[in-house]
Amino acid sequence: MAEQLTKEDIRKEANIVYKKTEVLTDNVLHYCPGCGHGTIHRIIAEVIEEMDIQSETIGIAPVGCSVLAYNYFDLDMHEAAHGRAPAVATGIKRLLPNKYVFTYQGDGDLAAIGTAETIHACNRGENITIIFVNNGIYGMTGGQMAPTTLEGMKSSTTPYGRNIKQMGNPLKMTELVAQLPGTYFVTRQAVHTPAYVRKAKKAIKKAIQYQEREKGLSFVEVVSNCNSGWKMTPVQANKWMEENMFPFYPLGDIKVPEDK
């Protein structure tokens, strides 16, 4: 009979094949099971650990589901007012030009109330990284329509589906900021499968590394799910995202540096 491995054996340094990055704290995530935020937090933290820049990085949390992001990153963190993260990041980066500065924002924060701050930080070419998590809904306040809610998509404030005539069009913020001369790297990613997680992590790593080049702002949209707000199981939500979100918000690089 084969010898059974005890828990202690499994935890031996030699047997560890994966462990949580130390750039994440041990605080229990408040996010709903199935939500993409936890994964996105993890890959950002892993990138910071791999780059060995924990002591040189300042993160800015938004208002929205990720308002408490500062509880999870073992970094100096600054919690901004709703939509103002790019302005807060500008203040920090201008005064600490040798530090790495990133914002972590949702669609309501970045593409509705913070549109002006987002566009102008991008257009000025602030040497920061914006991580934009787009799940097409206001999660924290209970599933209201977001600027990125798709046509026909139901939310608590569009209970019969988003009517374009009444509510206007979903906003493709990432394509918009890619037009601005101040952005250096603009990409759209997802984290619903391991392969996409690896891709997204690579993109985030580049987006943070590019701050060293001082060539402008790097912008990473992550199209994500909101199974609670969409009123679906996590599996259904990911399927719905692939079938409905990706056609409107196609994944891939939108603007890549010319001087690779």
Binding site: A87, V88, T90, G91, I92, L95, A116, E117
Partner: peptide, 26 residues
């Protein structure tokens, strides 16, 4: 000293918020 014309007063006060958090005289 850094000087920046912001896109609005909303942005300028939030730039102060960031800078002040970093311990700077803003």
């Amino acid at each position: 000293m850094v000087v920046l014309q912001a896109e609005s007063e909303v942005a300028s006060i939030n730039m102060l918020y960031g800078g002040a958090g970093a311990g700077k005289k803003v």
